[in-house]
Design a protein around this nucleic acid. Sequence first.
DNA 1: GTCAAACTGTCAACCGGTTGCCAACTATTG
DNA 2: CAATAGTTGGCAACCGGTTGACAGTTTGAC
Lengths: 355, 355
Amino acid sequence: MPDYDGAVTEATNSGAVTLPAKRGRGERSSPTIYDIAKLAGVNPSTVSRALSKPGRVSAKTQKIIEDAAEQLNYRVNPFARALPTGRTQTIGLIVADITNPTFFDIIRGAETTGSARDYTLVLAESAESPETELIAARRMLSTVDGLILASPRMDDEEIRALAADKPVVVINREIEGVPCVVPDVNKGISQAVRSLAANGHQELAYVAGPPQSWMSRRRWEGVQAACDWYKLGAVRLESSKPTVDGGRQVARDVLASGATAVITYNDLLAIGLMQELQAAGMHVPDQISIVGFDDIFGADFTTPALTTVRSPLGECGSRAAALLLDMLLGHDGPAGAVRVDTELVVRGSSGRLIA
Amino acid sequence: MPDYDGAVTEATNSGAVTLPAKRGRGERSSPTIYDIAKLAGVNPSTVSRALSKPGRVSAKTQKIIEDAAEQLNYRVNPFARALPTGRTQTIGLIVADITNPTFFDIIRGAETTGSARDYTLVLAESAESPETELIAARRMLSTVDGLILASPRMDDEEIRALAADKPVVVINREIEGVPCVVPDVNKGISQAVRSLAANGHQELAYVAGPPQSWMSRRRWEGVQAACDWYKLGAVRLESSKPTVDGGRQVARDVLASGATAVITYNDLLAIGLMQELQAAGMHVPDQISIVGFDDIFGADFTTPALTTVRSPLGECGSRAAALLLDMLLGHDGPAGAVRVDTELVVRGSSGRLIA
DNA sequence: GTCAAACTGTCAACCGGTTGCCAACTATTG
DNA sequence: CAATAGTTGGCAACCGGTTGACAGTTTGAC
């Protein structure tokens, strides 16, 4: 029910009616612990304790105060609480690109887990820029209880500095001394390369992501290791940006490389690459196999549907938020990185080479 | 820019910068206006005025204070500011479903426009539930300066009640007395139906979205009107949920309806429907044409690519945020709804009926 | 019955800005 | 040069909770 605060407390204002916007627009203001205290016949500090320090006041008083609070439809003023305590019931999330579906699930996972524990999610975007990211992180850090960095682009040192200030959890990157949630790509990559090798491929290209991306490097290392093991040649190609468009642009280099199988840093690149190759008359997977990363929304819309190494991103977001909330309760972060499993999802874009 | 949001540009770390004073238990705390006041040799209130009320203090004092603030690397404490003023430099956005790509452009548009004016975006999800939405809206409203509701599911009355409290802008719905940003679907629908009629279709089905969705009703009305005009039969089918899955489930009803052309409430439904119809051996568009709504990310990944009525959702998010920020500056909201244009994007999923 | 420990509620001092009001100072004008 | 209007800076009272210190009450042990 909308609280239309009934009685105007006449004790407050002595003089003339302050009609011009006292707060915001309307004159309405929500009940405070002082109102409750008056109604319950106790001291405001007792109200404060009853409402936030269970056990500190007697059960009887507690009940009286809770009833009064209910009657007035009281809600704490988050700012008043935040001012002396610093607690804001808020967690921040910074992603590199809001429109990148990779982050959809991370955002949802974090939001869901957060709001289940009465935390609100604050979102910011870094636009893939380390500088923007740092500025956003700094600005946020003063207003949230903790911060989740999804695929951060800034330096380890800067992240550690932030983490020294308030709890920080990192997704998709490992940083010594900072709690991390990281998909363990080895399993998925190993499956992917084995599958490609089994299908007769001998030369593989990896299309890399942003140079600042730890995960892109990690995936390249994984690809190299797996290719060594399965005796495939591996070449690394750069992309201009980790998007569908970037994938289209890298198609030339892919063709020039002579590789018959491509693993891309993410699904967007894979999709763009596939579109461009098909437009150039190539047949996927008969002439070239394409494997993406992440299994984003839409990866199965393409024809052929995209084979991809799935990272459980929703789980990453959710685990990161849970970790953060735990840390806010005073627990220590995990010693090492939290690893979540990846797996190859085989669809139509990879298969036997038909030479 | 009237507000001092902190010296972000402290590139020149020249010489002795007084470190922030330690708080009682060795916790670091950031500098306050009192620190600045001491350093500048003025009263704290003068500092406050210098930093937030341009023109209220003399240029000379202003300069001294700004230098001192810079030297201390001062940032306002948002909570301390919010407590007396209610201003938080924050706007809220509530969407029905965080993972629905429809909202991603809206989110990005709002975030981008907001952060360009130094506002932070706070995000919440209603999970398509009017109750959850209302709770989230209430909780948010006390902590943000204004609220954007994207495709709200709650009653008009409840929204008006919220709008009476703080500035509210609605996207994808028209509510008398509340500023709205709404894609004007008529043009796009008209183009779509005309195109279908020209391709020989005579019976059309509309797959509706959530019953609480104003936009779904609006689109149905538009479809009916256009079908009247172009002399097509129109039948309305219900979906269980506005997702890919919901689209798959409604395939049976679509087939049973005998319609040869389908317009769905959104692209997700269209994609799911197309998948299921194709799985059942139907050929799109030779046997049945499918037209979606919104032109979301991935709509062009399908085979055939999806014909859809594009709504400029990023623009909606951005316009809504701009509107809201204007209102926060004291301007009135627009008299009527702000309409943005829609247009048909013809791709492969619609075409001539081959009977 | 005495004395101390445990429990409860109150007081008052914050947290860090904002702002109405007033006094002092400056500039303008007659 | 005095009177007046316009500036500018300071004082102090908030905003709404939180919390350490403390005193009054109970409770419990001996």
